[in-house]
Design a protein around this nucleic acid. Structure first.
Length: 664
DNA sequence: ATAAAAGTGGTT
DNA sequence: AACCACTTTTAT
């Protein structure tokens, strides 16, 4: 079918075509994707020296692209999350023993039940008698063909015709690439997927983000290969969206956008000026400490779990003491994020008088005072600085997606200096952060944390003024013997009291709430699996469309109320042929007009919901026995309610939902 | 006491 | 997407 007999070298450096390990002089590395190839196995090896220097591999040059354009199918883009979901369901199955779970995971990961389309490549490999398909081969970079490093899922444009109007939408084309390979490809001016040639939208070019589902899947797969007990950590990392982080946001706060002003109690028992990781003993609610990869919906929750205390400022610190944490939220254009290291910009230099919080114009030079001096001090003493990344950072591929803030571990500030910023008018304080955490970063599939790494090359240092580098030995450093980062000098003694923390009763309530929000509980399954996609509540009289989407019967009917199946098309007295109305499924482009005429309740789904609700009621009754539930009597009048009233959203929502859907 | 701070939800 | 009103926490 195609003359596709060219293969690169595998990760071990063995040519996948001739199966030999080419000597260095016969190995040629692609200028785009840095994959090594065996020269004598190439169909058209470069002929001149300059051609050799700028050589692009067959995949990157696109000369002999063996893969047909496969149209737009939901491909690998969704594999990551599907696979993770499948792994979780195995984990959650209590009827299985540990070994059975491991076995099931192995089966799953060996390629069965994981998309079959797009697998020309796989077929070729197997037919050639190459290694059996394992999960990692599903996660190869489409440029370098090696295990994905910092995977990005390529999105491409496709045209969608709805009601005679064409929409340009973007969708994963099913091809994943290492961030590095993708950026190189883009840097060469390409604007199409290297594999399927579909056009890549500008948003993908300017803002590629690492696909954390794939990272999780790779990590889970590795864990599962070892069949050891590290899964819980990884699972936490995947599912932390389900925690009731907003538990302490008051109704009043939510109403008027005052959330930042209503920051509640702190869940961890560390002082505000605590440096470095937060250990389990300071986390009486969960007893696990602050974990790398945890994420929150807002600065409030981020503050409550101790990652970063100020809820507006990007820097936490004191000029005479040091800086404890920073947030990367793209507030300053000069920031430059490379994941394991980044260049951070100081604060200040802007006129923010009155309420001009949105002013981004630099009006004067930044100086090493206040927060900037705090950062410089942390640099001087080599303190660990907690780093939080926000979705708001639109330029960083490492930023989390979905309006979140994520704790990424501790970094050290190795150097700081000043240089005129991007706006070209005033000097900015600059800080070189390098990661030094014992846990792997959220975007790597590594199992281990950081090892000391050489400082990156920072070109702008040539033009820098006021350069400051640490002279003394760092307080937080890598212990070769213990193979981990630790305090080499005692951490600075806190100057502040631990305050505004939960009392024991509140802790208990929160612990309960977290337990309830655990994705394996009935409650969470109710919420997740049986939510009506229109009213977002657990379904009442569930109906399932031909396109397999679920809604409350009433919600669906009211959506199309007043739309007749057949429309008369008439002008004046003349009658034209009547036309069928198109009724688009609220979740997909499928026309469900016929279905809507007489939707039948899905009895099976309804029964499952009934069962789950009953179980949940029993659970609730039990927990009511154990401890007095806080008055979750909603309906507070919005004028004079106590400012810091505690409200457990999750509980309130769930019980309200159940009551409603209980009605016939 | 004062002003800065990489926020938040709602509205143009 | 830009603006706005509403606010708290923090450092000094």
């Amino acid at each position: 079918m195609t003359p596709a007999t060219q293969y690169p070298c595998d990760p071990e450096g063995v040519c996948m075509r001739c199966k030999s390990m080419p000597p260095p002089e016969e190995s040629l590395t692609c200028g785009t994707c840095v994959t090594p190839w065996h020269v004598s196995c190439l169909l058209s090896p470069p002929e001149t020296l300059s051609a050799t220097l700028q050589w692009l591999c067959p995949d990157c040059s696109g000369e002999t692209n063996p893969l047909p354009v496969s149209g737009v199918a939901a491909g690998y883009g969704s594999v990551g999350s599907d696979l993770v979901a499948a792994i979780h369901s195995i984990e959650a199955d209590e009827t299985l023993s540990a070994e059975e779970k491991a076995k099931k995971k192995q089966q799953l990961l060996s390629g069965k039940g994981v998309v079959d389309e797009d697998d020309e490549e796989e077929k070729k490999k197997t037919s050639k008698g190459k290694k059996p398909i394992d999960v990692l081969s599903h996660f190869e970079c489409s440029f370098c063909m090696q295990s994905l490093q910092k995977p990005v899922s390529v999105r491409v444009l496709f045209a969608l015709a709805l009601m005679l109007v064409w929409f340009l939408e973007s969708t994963p084309c099913g091809h994943n690439a290492c961030l590095k390979c993708f950026l190189k490809w883009m840097g060469q001016g390409h604007r199409s997927c290297g594999t399927c040639r579909s056009v890549i939208p500008e948003s993908m070019v300017t803002n590629p983000r690492i696909n954390l589902s794939i990272v999780s899947a790779i990590r889970l797969a590795r864990v599962s290969e070892k069949a050891d007990a590290r899964t819980s950590k990884v699972v936490h990392y995947v599912d932390n969206e389900d925690r009731p982080d907003k538990a302490f946001t008051t109704e009043r706060a939510k109403k008027t956008g005052n959330a930042n002003a209503s920051s509640g109690k702190i869940f961890v028992t560390i002082p505000r000026d605590h440096f470095g990781p937060i250990p389990a003993e300071n986390d009486p609610v969960r007893n696990q400490g602050l974990l790398v990869g945890e994420s929150w919906k807002g600065r409030l929750a981020c503050r409550q779990w101790g990652a970063h205390f100020p809820h507006v400022s990007g820097i936490a610190g004191q000029a005479s003491y040091g800086a404890q944490s920073v947030v990367l939220a793209g507030g300053y254009d000069d920031d430059e994020d490379h994941g394991e290291w980044f260049l951070y910009t100081g604060s200040g230099g802007r006129i923010l008088k009155g309420n001009k919080r949105t002013n981004t114009v630099q009006a004067f030079d930044q100086v090493f005072l206040n927060f900037n001096e705090a950062l410089r001090l942390s640099c001087k003493l080599g303190y660990p600085v907690r780093v939080v990344r926000s979705t708001k950072d639109k330029r960083s591929p490492y930023a989390p997606q979905g309006g979140l803030l994520r704790y990424d571990g501790v970094y050290r500030i190795e150097k700081c200096w000043r240089i005129v910023g991007i706006q070209g008018t005033h000097k900015m304080c600059r800080f070189l952060f390098v990661r030094c955490d014992n846990e792997p970063a959220p975007w790597t599939s590594d199992e281990h944390g950081d090892r000391p790494r050489p400082l990156p090359n920072v070109p702008e240092l040539n033009m820098a003024t006021d350069l400051f580098e640490r002279k003394e030995s760092p307080s937080w450093d890598f212990d070769e013997g213990e193979d981990r980062w630790r305090w080499m000098k005692p951490p600075p003694a806190s100057k502040k009291a631990v305050k505004n923390v939960l009392d024991p009763e509140e802790r208990k309530l929160l612990r309960e709430a977290i337990k309830s929000a655990n994705p394996n509980t009935m409650r969470a399954r109710l919420l997740k699996e049986f939510k009506c996609q229109i009213c977002q509540k657990v379904m009442t009289n569930p109906v399932t469309t031909p396109c397999a989407h679920n809604f409350c019967k009433a919600c669906l009917e009211s959506k199309f109320a007043g739309t007749a199946l057949v429309r008369e098309r008439g002008s004046g007295g003349r009658k034209l042929r009547s036309q069928k109305s198109v009724m688009k499924c609220p979740c997909c482009p499928t026309d469900i007009a016929e279905f809507v005429q007489n939707p039948q309740v899905n009895r099976e789904v309804a029964e499952v919901i009934e069962k789950l609700k009953k179980q949940e009621e029993e659970e609730n009754a039990k927990s009511l026995d154990e401890g007095q539930c806080s008055g979750t009597s909603h309906e507070e009048e919005d004028d004079e309610q106590p400012k810091k009233r505690i409200k457990l959203d999750t509980d309130a929502e769930v019980s309200a939902t159940v009551v409603e859907s209980d009605m016939k």
